[in-house]
Amino acid sequence: MELTIDGRNVPFRAGQTVLDVARENGIYIPTLCWHPRIGPSSRCRLCIVEIEGTRGLQTACSVLAGSGITVRTDTEIVKTARRMTVENLLYDGHHDCIACEANGRCELQDVAYRLGIREYPVVSEPAQLLDDSSAMIVMDPNKCIVCGRCIIACNEIVGNDVLTFSQRGYRTKIVCDTAVPMAESSCVQCGECLQLCPTGAITEKKSAGKGREWELEKVNSTCPYCGVGCQVILHVDRAANRIVRISGREVPPNDGMLCVKGRFAYEFTESPKRLTKPLIKKDGKHVEVSWDEALDYTARRFKEIKEKHGADAFGFIASSRSTNENAYATMKFSRAVIGTNNVDNCART
């Protein structure tokens, strides 16, 4: 099956939308409210295209591809309509990219750039107060384009049912519960809303000012908390040797979703309370020693105890918080070096 987009014949599969087909073939159609995990909601009107034989402009995200249809994504009418939509969004809010946390990962910024929008007024005083009451998340209604992605994220994707639209028309605003500050709401700070927000309207509080998107290195890893094993992307400032923020990777088992611990509890690695040197107890007090001293001392005491009391006088507890490699090394050490099967892990607690 084939359809025509901008004069090119492109293949498609049943069930694909015009937007899917265009994206698959590298044809640019801007979107704001669409996201792979959200699907079409036809709110932002940016994916409009001309389809031969239909009246007006159609939203590519919600029109199914059909055999033989002819789509145009680049006509003057389409471009003007898109530009007007984005300009209205920019005029309406307070989009100050220099100060914005989302600079570099903002979909509104990207579409404005793609559509060649050079000028728009940034009012000096934002009209609405931002909600920074909660521990982890900042909501800035002045940067909100009311695309509804956070609403779907909160209600349908993670089912936490906190965010909702209030009012209607141009007064529409996204609020927590009954328009209470986020800290007083039923929000559990999972952060799915900020992961799916296309602008700087919902951002991480703790990462503010700590590094631009393009400066941070992305490292794929697994969350260190419960047994679900959520896949995460660590956004790392290599020079400062610091994890700046964490986002969810859209692969199994979590498909991008995280909880408050997985997304926000990461600074323990850089805590000044970390142990940084081996310690040996001397006269009842722990004193810092070199690795060689600590290892030699431990090996000597282990040998003594083994000679005197035998291998089964040892007990080894591997960590269920650490890696498989570390657990295997503990297991091998107890069996191959000491010679005991007294090895266990904290599976029982």
């Binding site: 209600n155 519960d177 009954t178």
Partner: peptide, 8 residues
């Protein structure tokens, strides 16, 4: 239903 739905 969530209170936010009623409020909305």
């Amino acid at each position: 239903v969530p209170s936010g739905k009623v409020y909305g």
